[in-house]
Amino acid sequence: MHHANQFYGHTYVLARYCEMPDPDHPQRLDGYLQHGWNIGDGLAPGVPFVHGSPLFVWSERTRRRAWSQGRRNVVAIGAPFAYLLEVCPPEPAAGEREGTIFYPFHGWEGQQILGDHRRLAREIAETESGPVTVCLYWNEHQQPEIQAVYADAGFRVVCHGRRGFWWRGQDREFLVRQLTELRRHRRVASNRLTSAIWYGLLAGCEAAVYGDPMVLENADATFGGYSRIASQWAALHGRETDAEVCRELARQELGADLLAGPAELRVLFGWQQTWADAARRTTEGAVHA
């Protein structure tokens, strides 16, 4: 059970989808769960990997790539966000989508971003016509000077929460909050192609990738770096993109067409017995009552 499995509340989402008892507490997942869109083998660079452990990746393409890198126990299951859409179907009475939600490319606790937020804010203002929400990663959200750059440009600034680290400080509702925001907006945009763009497309947004892509401190270039992303997924880059083409790509990258059913996923994660025991206890309780 790697601690990254719980980043962004992924295991909690999957536990809800699998109808697990007590889904708000960590379910041990037998293997490694891909925790972000990835152009490599599904694992973040440098993750200590126990040989032979199942690696649950989002897409069939990532599975093939992982196989080519020597991983043999790779299972494509789809992204947790795609499962969240199954758990939280859109409300029929939802209002009209409006404006753009922009995700400035973020680093993480171990790698900072080097770039000019002020210039990016100007570019967003020049491009977007409707109201703009800027979503910052928590460590940038905690820096008032970065928040101020976007707030001063007239943007609404939000943060979906912390992804957590080493089983602590994680925000279980991270993805739920993100989905809610995405469903409010017509467009999702970023200065880099990241998970958030794919999520937005799957949640029904149009997508655009533009602006200074910024530089990730000590970025790993094993799989080609950002230049490869820009060329391989060129369809998503630009201020206006073809929504249908992008959505199809999102379905592929997030494995939306290969999602496992709750029972199948429970067996894959080693949760079936826990679920069956709980179901039996519930049945027995109902009989006694």
Partner: peptide, 25 residues
């Protein structure tokens, strides 16, 4: 096969059965 390589026959049977809503008890 597209399932965990570490699965034994019983576990593979379970995951295959899960796709047809017939997980063995």
């Amino acid at each position: 096969h597209p399932y965990p390589l570490t699965f034994d026959a019983a576990e593979l049977t379970e995951v295959l059965a899960a796709t047809v809503d017939a997980v063995p008890g």
